[in-house]
Computed example of a mutant assay.
Amino acid sequence: MTSILVLNGPNLNLLGTRQPEVYGRTTLSDIEAMCQDHAKARGFEVSFLQSNHEGALVDAIHAAKTVHNGILINAGAYTHTSIAIHDAIASVELPVCELHLSNIHAREEFRHHSYISKVAVGMICGFGAHGYVLGLDALFNHLGL
């Protein structure tokens, strides 16, 4: 069965309470439940990991190569700083969809640059929690399923 890994980076464990005017009031648990329901309806599986630690995200990307068909990643602030995550994505040869709850291009200048975009098949930003469903569908369609 097709499997997508959903990775969430630093501070995303605080969704629902952290800057709700920017990120909304939906919690990460709510997003996971929404993704599970959507994946089940489409006939694929999703697995989740959230970490505030860059190395844990890199390890998960490496491990995904033999387990998952694609990765949906909201790397949070690591999007703008992590060459290590860029290199990990490039090394596993899996399709990756980059995701952001807010429109990073309408925010501070430092958020406009992404190390992930160069190795992702696409990016979804600005649609809040619903962006996760859009990202899953984008990967599912990219995989030709």
Score class of each variant (00 low, 15 high):
Leu49Ser: 06
Ala56Thr: 12
Ile83Lys: 08
Phe48Glu: 01
Tyr132Thr: 03
Pro10Ser: 07
Met34Arg: 13
His142Leu: 15
Ser117Asp: 08
Asn8His: 12
Val121Pro: 01
Met123Gly: 06
Arg42Gly: 01
Val119His: 02
His112Phe: 04
Gln50Trp: 07
Leu134Met: 14
Ala63Val: 06
Ile124Met: 04
Leu143Pro: 05
Lys65Arg: 15
Thr79Cys: 06
Ala106Trp: 01
Leu139Gln: 03
Val58Leu: 04
Leu28Asn: 06
Ala88His: 02
Asp37Tyr: 00
Val67Gly: 00
Asn52Met: 09
Val119Ile: 01
Met123Pro: 00
Asp59Met: 03
Gln36Pro: 00
Arg42Trp: 12
Ser51His: 07
Glu109Trp: 05
Ala77Arg: 00
Ile85Gln: 03
Gly9Met: 08
His100Lys: 04
His38Ala: 14
Leu139Ser: 05
Arg25Leu: 08
Leu12Tyr: 09
Asn141Gly: 09
His80Asn: 15
Leu28Tyr: 05
Asn52Tyr: 10
Leu14Met: 11
Ser82Ala: 15
Gln36Ala: 05
Leu15Ala: 08
Phe110Met: 02
Leu7Asp: 10
Ala56Gln: 15
Val46Cys: 07
His53Lys: 11
Pro95Val: 11
Leu5Cys: 05
Ala90Val: 11
Thr17Arg: 10
Ala90Ser: 15
Asn74Val: 13
Leu28Ser: 06
Pro20Thr: 13
Asn13Ile: 14
Asp37Ala: 13
Gly55Thr: 10
Gly70Pro: 07
Asn74Arg: 07
Leu134Asn: 00
Glu108Pro: 07
Gln19Asn: 13
Ala75Leu: 06
Ser114Ala: 05
Ala138Ser: 10
His62Met: 12
Glu109Pro: 02
Arg18Asp: 08
Val92Tyr: 05
Lys118Met: 02
Glu21Arg: 05
Pro10Met: 08
Leu101Trp: 04
Leu145Trp: 15
His105Pro: 01
Asn8Ile: 07
Ser102Thr: 10
Cys125Arg: 00
Ile31Val: 11
Ala63Asn: 09
Gln50Ser: 14
His100Thr: 07
Met34Gly: 00
His142Lys: 12
Leu7His: 05
Val46Met: 00
His86Phe: 12
Ala33Val: 11
Arg18Ser: 11
Gly55Val: 10
Ser117Trp: 03
Met123Tyr: 00
Asn8Asp: 05
Lys65Glu: 15
Phe127Tyr: 15
Thr17Met: 04
Val67Tyr: 01
Gln50Thr: 14
